[in-house]
């Protein structure tokens, strides 16, 4: 009986320390850091959206350093090929001059994969991550290769209206646990960033988690957090509220939404809410936890129709209306 509280205590301690370490470099990005960590402990992938130069790559690199996970960075470009991500079969000459195909793993075979500017690659290349993100394995040359745990993809993308970008297909978007927006820092935060990055000494990130197994155990603890039907109903209601043409549709969803959030969105809501519940010191999920997770978990799963796009509507507005019910 005492194991659970200890594990919860360990979880909260680790979470706090990692956040503390990351915020040493990520000034003024507290919600972003928290969202990334929530996705990490929930076992989900994160899509970071923001203009270049806001520290998205640094955020992921800092996280990798703090948790001591194998980190790989893939810079997505229009000419990036799937094999560049997944790996390829190479002809290897063995003893006696015998030649054979040998799988050369790509950067996806890491614990933390940074897919930088993922929307600059072609949809074909983007889709190369689909199986890896969902099934935690890749298939090359008819052979499936299981990825190591933990595995998390943190993709960054520039706003879609920028030049040379390809919108992510809905199927891949749905595989991201969270979509976090990287906000431009305030003036005060900008001062702090400049002070820290332009001085002679660079802050060093301490490792909080030495063993990746600890992260996996903490993920198990998160999944054990109980959730009653009344609270789960809140998550279901939120997801259904984003769908047009249902009894629970909000007016904005009925008018401007083409597709609402998927069941993966509801799963993301629940898992994130469990993390938030533990962070709040509770052993159960509340509706407030669901609501707290809703924007990040649903915004990339709500597809606006043409009228919504033309009206400059944002998915966050639809979600906010659903939360206000």
């Amino acid at each position: 009986m005492n194991a659970i509280p200890e594990q919860v205590k360990e979880f909260c301690g680790c979470f706090g320390r990692i956040r503390q370490e990351m915020e040493r470099l990520m000034v003024g990005q507290g919600p972003l850091v928290e969202g990334v960590l929530v996705a990490l402990f929930a076992g989900g992938h994160v899509l970071l959206e923001g203009v270049p130069g806001l520290g998205k790559t640094m955020l992921v690199r800092t996280l990798a350093e703090a948790v001591n996970l194998k980190f790989a960075r893939i810079q997505f470009t229009p000419d990036l090929m799937p094999s560049d991500i997944l790996g390829t079969q190479l002809i290897v000459e063995g003893e006696g001059g015998r030649k054979a195909f040998q799988f050369q793993p790509g950067p996806v075979f890491s614990n933390l994969v940074l897919a930088d500017e993922i929307n600059r690659a072609t949809p074909k290349t983007q889709s190369a991550l689909l199986e890896a993100m969902q099934e935690r394995r890749v298939t090359v040359g008819g052979v499936s290769h299981v990825l190591g745990e933990p595995f998390q993809v943190l993709a960054t993308q520039n706003p879609l209206e920028m030049e040379g970008t390809y919108p992510l297909p809905e199927a891949q978007l749905d595989r991201f646990f969270f979509k976090l927006k990287v906000a431009f820092p305030s003036g005060e935060d900008l001062h702090a960033i400049l002070d820290r990055t332009t001085s002679g000494e660079q802050p060093r990130i301490a490792r909080v988690l030495e063993d990746p197994e600890r992260l996996l155990r903490m993920r198990e603890v998160v999944r054990q957090v109980p959730l009653v039907r009344e609270v789960q109903e809140r998550a279901v209601g939120l997801v259904l509220a984003t769908h047009p043409g249902t009894e629970r549709s909000t007016p904005l969803a009925s008018r401007y939404v083409r597709y609402g959030a998927s069941p993966r969105g509801a799963q993301a809501l629940i898992l994130a809410a469990k993390v938030y519940a533990l962070l709040e010191g509770r052993y159960h999920v509340s509706k407030a936890d669901i609501d707290r997770a809703a924007p990040a978990a649903l915004r990339h799963r709500v597809m606006l129709n043409f009228e919504g796009e033309a009206a400059g509507m944002d998915a966050d507005q639809v979600i906010a209306e659903a939360l206000g019910r």
Partner: peptide, 28 residues
């Protein structure tokens, strides 16, 4: 209350509870 009443009520109605559910029930 952070949905403690409804959680406690529903967990209390369950015949068997996991370790985490029992802790949550006791806490509520």
């Amino acid at each position: 209350t952070g949905d403690r009443f409804v959680t406690g009520w529903e967990l209390g109605q369950r015949g068997s509870r996991t370790e985490m559910e029992e802790i949550a029930f006791q806490e509520c």
